[in-house]
Amino acid sequence: MNRTIDWNEILQLVFNATGETLYMVLLAGLFTLLIGLPLGVLLFISRSGGIYPMPQLHKSLGGLVNLGRSLPFVVMLIALIPLTRLIVGTTLGSTAAVVPITIGAFPFFARIVENALDEVDKGRIEAILAMGGDLRDVIFKVLLPEALPALVAGVTLTLVMLIGFSSMAGVIGGGGLGDLAIRYGYQRFNNQVMVVTVIVLVVLVQSVQSLGDRMVRSLAHRR
């Protein structure tokens, strides 16, 4: 039997869940950037024929990244429950959900970084090295500045993916809009909650994508 919920209650539930979703996405996004950016740089410079070839390290890191990208996120959510409990002390709530969301996202972002750096003009790299520049100069004066538009586009794509991940985290009680849709929409057969939740998720994705696209166009124009 359907339970009637007034719109004030629905909007309050959605408002709280949206705040939890933004918390998860922003915190996981920060950790994904901190882990994925240096990992992507390392993948790029350590490849055979790269700036600082380390074939064994590149192979190991590449295998780790490929493993992380190959696992379905729902499976990863469940598999990482012991690690999440070890790090956070619980497996429930928005903070706990940040752990599997980050682990699921940083391999993807690392590959984006590697591909973005691969588009940088090799002549600029050679010019810096010819002038006596070291690896640090190549990374911070050529690779990252030149690849900035592509990196921003990658960050945008990753944030959109994180919104989806945060919704799936509701399966294990991760909070946010996904948890709201499951507990108040699906389990209680409340179509109003489901519809409003979907609308808010669409608005979040469109907002992030639009902002990211504008930033990419602005950076490309400056170049």
Rank of each mutant, 00 (worst) to 15 (best):
M24N: 00
N2Y: 12
L157T: 14
L86H: 10
A150F: 08
T102S: 06
G29W: 04
F44V: 01
L37H: 03
L201N: 05
L157N: 12
A110M: 03
T4Q: 15
R214Q: 14
R217H: 13
A169Q: 07
L135G: 07
F189A: 12
G170V: 05
V65E: 02
V120F: 02
H58K: 11
P38Y: 02
R214L: 09
M168Y: 11
I45D: 03
A181C: 11
L26Y: 00
P149V: 06
D134Y: 09
G93N: 09
S166D: 03
M76Y: 12
L77H: 03
A153D: 08
L92G: 04
G173S: 06
L33H: 00
L180S: 13
L201F: 02
R69P: 08
A181D: 05
M1V: 06
G176H: 10
L33K: 03
P100Y: 05
M1Q: 05
G63T: 10
M1I: 04
A97K: 00
P72G: 08
G176A: 14
A28H: 00
L37R: 06
S48N: 12
Y186A: 10
I51H: 14
L13H: 00
R3A: 09
G164L: 03
G176S: 06
L27P: 04
S166Q: 05
G175I: 02
G62I: 07
A169F: 11
D213C: 01
N190I: 02
L22H: 00
V193G: 03
E126D: 15
G49H: 13
M24T: 04
S167V: 14
F44D: 04
E126G: 12
R85L: 08
A28S: 13
T84M: 10
F44S: 00
A153L: 01
S166T: 04
T84P: 08
G63L: 15
M54Y: 10
F189V: 11
L219C: 06
E126F: 05
L30C: 01
S166N: 08
R183M: 15
Q12K: 12
L13K: 13
N191W: 13
V74N: 13
T18H: 01
I78H: 07
F106M: 01
I45Y: 05
V99E: 01
V208S: 05
V160L: 14
L201V: 08
T90W: 11
L143D: 01
A130W: 06
Y52E: 14
K141W: 06
R85I: 11
D6F: 00
S218Y: 13
R214H: 10
I35A: 06
Q12P: 00
A127S: 12
R183T: 07
A96Q: 02
K141R: 11
S48V: 10
H58T: 07
L162F: 09
T32N: 13
T18M: 02
L71P: 12
M76C: 04
V113C: 13
M76D: 06
I45W: 04
V142W: 02
T84R: 15
I139Q: 05
G178I: 09
P53S: 14
A96S: 03
M168K: 02
L57F: 15
T197G: 00
L30M: 07
A130K: 09
I87A: 14
V200E: 00
